[in-house]
């Protein structure tokens, strides 16, 4: 791995994930930073507060007590129901991502404790096809919500996704209904659901579970919306105002309960669970 590497993440479409070199360049302030400075600060730039994009595993480690959790539904793997081919067959794309990232698809689910409260966390993997939601993401999230209902433990989701996965067509769309139905049942039982929205959360993910938290938490500066900014610009034929569709904008418009820096995220979630969850 290169000592200095700021291009690797760009190639993979991850605008602000942290490459593995010794040094990283912050996308926020352009400062060259020592890798450990960033990783030791929850992958937040110590200079400007820019939140680097992190993997689902890092996310689970960060949220559970002592970084310990048991992975759930790990065996659920994608297929190619439409036999979808664009510039490359979907099957091949899946294989390439699986090999590179050592995960089956774009969601990891773990069970552990948060501030000593047993909970399930489902975190999206943006590096896997833009965190797109297909049948596997839908199935694992639905199973997670069902398990929470069964065990009467809270659910936490961490969204990071461009939306539904086109390569699974209408089946991806249906995952929105499937997950939302499971969340409806969880809600009926009075079990808390905390939704964390990170950069970016758009499309069918925002328009299903990510907006349905009892508590919706945004990470600072995260792009959150239904339509992506480019689509909106094309529709209205004008450029968008500064800060549009960022966490702070959504907070102002009543869609989020709070914007919380990543270093405080775990404690904030723990506090919400303590206040809401009847153990």
């Amino acid at each position: 791995m290169a000592l200095f590497d700021s291009s690797a993440s760009k190639k993979k479409g991850g605008r602000s994930s942290v490459p593995d070199g010794l040094w990283v360049k912050c996308d926020g302030c352009r400062e060259i930073l020592y890798h450990r400075e960033v990783s030791g600060n929850a992958f937040v730039c110590p200079r400007c507060g820019h939140h680097f994009r992190i993997s689902a595993r890092e996310r689970l480690t960060m949220l559970f007590d002592n970084g310990r959790y048991k992975e759930l539904f790990a065996k659920v793997r994608p297929t190619d129901p439409l036999e979808f081919v664009d510039s490359r067959p979907y099957k091949e794309r899946l294989k390439a991502y699986q090999k590179r990232l050592k995960v089956h698809d774009a969601l990891l689910v773990g069970r552990g404790t948060i501030g000593e409260i047993p909970a399930i966390v489902a975190a999206m993997e943006y590096a896997f096809m833009g965190g797109s939601m297909g049948s596997v993401v839908g199935e694992k999230l639905t199973s997670a919500a069902e398990r929470c209902r069964q065990r009467r433990i809270p659910l936490v989701t961490v969204a990071c996704s461009g939306g539904a996965r086109m390569q699974e067509g209408v089946l991806s769309l249906m995952q929105m209904a499937k997950i939302s139905s499971a969340l409806a049942r969880l809600r009926e039982e009075g079990i808390p659901f905390v939704s964390v929205l990170t950069d970016p959360t758009t499309g069918g993910v925002t328009a299903s579970f990510a907006m349905l938290g009892d508590v919706n938490i945004g990470e600072p500066g995260a792009l959150i919306g239904f339509a992506g900014p480019r689509v909106i610009e094309q529709t209205i034929r004008q450029s968008l105002p500064e800060g549009f569709q960022r966490s702070e904008f959504l907070l102002e418009h009543g869609m989020l309960d709070m914007v919380v820096p990543r270093q405080e995220l775990k404690d904030t979630i723990a506090r919400c669970l303590r206040l809401l969850h009847a153990a």
Binding site: M176, A177, S180, S181, L183, A184, R185, R187, E188, T206, A207, S208, F209, A210, M211, L212, G225, F226, A227, V231, I232, T235, I236, L240, P241, F244, Q245, H253, G254, M255
Partner: peptide, 26 residues
């Protein structure tokens, strides 16, 4: 599709859709 515009985003297009999915389920 749902309208992709500034006003729609400001008033929570995603939330409105998500809520319908959840409420229709019950």
């Amino acid at each position: 599709g749902a309208y992709p515009g500034i006003d729609a985003e400001e008033r929570g297009q995603a939330e409105a859709i998500a809520r319908n999915l959840r409420e229709m389920a019950l």
